[in-house]
């Protein structure tokens, strides 16, 4: 295992701990829940093969599911989000030799492109999670409110986490 992988693995464990011990208990106005553990999936470099990306995504979702008693909800959402990662990123930046092996981050993409990428992915994830979990219980309006408010909250937090990463490396 190279250094980058070990670093990402430690980051994933820390963020899953934050997710299950803190974020899962935050429920602002009974609608918004922040999701921070997806940061690692969004951050993994584009050199990583799709097979490994999907494996990272599925396993992170599975562990979070295990801790929050929501079998299948996060693992399915993470897998579906991971498959959308490449198309979403290359919808905002051109796919050329320079960006082929890029690691999506604030420092590498610049604020505008990274914010668009991050927001799209967060929105995809939150809509998936709430649609899957509340499918038979809540109506569309409630799902949209919960997913949108959670997206905004998660987006803000993830942007914060990423800027912390940048300062750490400088």
């Amino acid at each position: 295992m190279d250094r980058g992988t070990i670093y990402n693995l430690i980051l994933l464990i820390c963020l899953i701990a934050v997710q299950i011990l803190i974020c899962n208990h935050i429920h602002i106005f009974n609608v918004a829940v922040p999701f921070v553990f997806i940061y690692v999936i969004l951050r993994l470099p584009m050199t990583l093969s799709t097979n490994w990306l999907l494996t990272w995504a599925f396993l992170s979702g599975f562990i979070v599911d295990l801790f929050s008693d929501t079998p299948g909800v996060n693992s399915l959402s993470c897998t579906l989000m991971a498959i959308a990662k490449r198309p979403v990123l290359y919808a905002y930046i051109p796919r050329d030799d320079r960006t082929k092996d890029i690691q999506p981050s604030l420092a590498n993409l610049g604020f505008a492109d990274y914010a668009k990428y991050l927001l799209t992915m967060t929105v995809i994830y939150c809509f998936l999670v709430f649609t899957i979990e509340y499918f038979s219980f809540a109506d569309v309006k409630e799902i949209v409110i919960m997913a949108s408010s959670s997206s905004v909250l998660s987006f803000g937090l993830l942007l914060g986490i990423d800027s912390l990463m940048v300062t750490k490396r400088d």
């Binding site: 999907l54 599911d65 899957i132």
Partner: peptide, 21 residues
């Protein structure tokens, strides 16, 4: 995307759906 990636994707989706159900 490579052929095997779709296979892995389908595999994880099916496991997740089984867990859900």
């Amino acid at each position: 995307m490579r052929y095997s990636a779709w296979f892995v994707f389908a595999f994880y989706v099916i496991i997740s759906l089984l867990l859900l159900v």
